[in-house]
Design a protein around this nucleic acid. Structure first.
Lengths: 128, 128
DNA sequence: GTCCATGCAAAGACTTTGCACTGGT
DNA sequence: ACCAGTGCAAAGTCTTTGCATGGAC
């Protein structure tokens, strides 16, 4: 268990993510909450997003190309990054079977988990 | 088809990757070839690695956390990034079934492909 | 001669960190 | 009072880009 104090900043950051439905990057969260809370610093946003994700309150999405982003939806689902605009979207692929693997790989690595991410073109960028 | 000229730089960069078996990042390729070819610039290395990957001569590995890296082995295989040292290793997971998806997702995205990447701890970092 | 490619340095995108101060407990 | 958390700015990591020059064809 991680010992944390309740700070207003942390709560504001959490609520901001919970109210964004577009997989915001840390910077996008920062820009959003800055309007009403100009004194919260970018570093605090980065630090708290990481913490909140560790606590399981939000989802930390890590994908190749472009910034990490965050999701209020913590249920398992899959994402696609648009090759044009780099934004991240939910994707509705019919059930993906769990990949089986030995925790200790023949190469000597200890495997913790894996990540599946899609790439393609989002609706907006298709129009262009 | 991409029109390209044959430059010594490009050939040196290709040969350097083909002679490295550790999934080097662009910077690691640069540092390696710099020893014998101090006049080749970092930008040229980045540009050519991308081009060579597009031509299918090497594999461009894109994973969350840390630099992209490159692989002389262009056959399909899977990679793991060590959470400690951030290095990338091959992994020998028994056959992973191909994921089925519709090219056009319900959300409106056009899906080009997907990527599976593992995370864990490499042999070296386990010792510590 | 054309124009792709290079070298260089600067800028850019994203994130982390050091440090003094603040505020939750 | 203690120390986790904050704000700020600087630094760090990885990569791209603008531009003048160079070299493949």
């Amino acid at each position: 268990m991680i010992i944390t104090r309740n700070t207003v900043q942390r709560e504001i950051i959490l609520q901001t993510v919970l109210n964004m439905d577009n997989h915001p990057s840390a910077d996008e969260v920062y820009e959003k909450l800055r309007f009403d809370n100009p004194s919260i610093s970018r570093a605090t946003v980065y630090r708290n997003l990481e913490l909140l994700a560790k606590q399981g309150k939000i989802l930390h999405i890590e994908m190749p190309k472009g910034a990490d982003c965050f999701d209020f939806n913590t249920k398992e689902h899959y994402h696609i990054r648009c090759d044009i605009c780099r934004k991240v979207y939910d994707i509705s692929v019919s059930k993906i079977p769990r990949i089986k693997y030995d925790k200790s790989d023949r190469g000597g690595c200890m495997i913790d988990g894996y990540n599946i991410s899609f790439s393609g073109t989002c609706p907006n960028c298709q129009k262009k």
